[in-house]
Amino acid sequence: MAMYEKETDEGLMERIKSGDHQAFSLLVRRHTQRFYACAFRLCACRNMSEDIVQDAFLKLWENPDRWKSGKGAQFTTWFYRVVINLTIDTLRKTKKYSGIEALDYIKDNVSGQEEQLVINEQQRILESMIQKLPERQRIALNLCFYEGLSNKEAAGVLKIGVKGLESLLMRAKKSLRDDLQRQGIL
């Protein structure tokens, strides 16, 4: 597997198309954490996020021809779209969205110090506010702030223009700012 370490994602995808399971394993190792985090931030459910990421990767292995190389397409941009669409579909089918689990892992970080407690409380409030944002605003915020995508890449994932993405981000930040001001955090 070490021989593929320097291979790009797109190069690995070409190998996967020819049935190379080692290339697939490397791609899974390289990106599972990132896409799990992406799914979890959207659906706030551990089991659902695990299923979504597993499903996305298994579909990729089963039918790698869905990935179209060329025209400068990036694997991660395309796979973000796959994971996000799967997450939205799953949420709509199960109608299970509480955002409660998203708050659970914050509790684990409590160190007992007062400052840490304040930070944790702020994070809990922030998390619940983010989970209350409309779906597209939440996706835009997650992609740009937490997945490290540029505005252009995030717009590509959402299949909208850069201006549209900026508008979503602006509205998300405005409602977060208003809520945080109401809570006395800002």
């Binding site: 985090a37 979890f40 931030r41 996020s49 892992y105 684990d108 994070q123 922030l126 945080l180």
Partner: peptide, 9 residues
């Protein structure tokens, strides 16, 4: 504040 958001385990 947004950047301080906790990473999911």
């Amino acid at each position: 504040i947004l950047r301080k958001r906790a990473e999911p385990q």
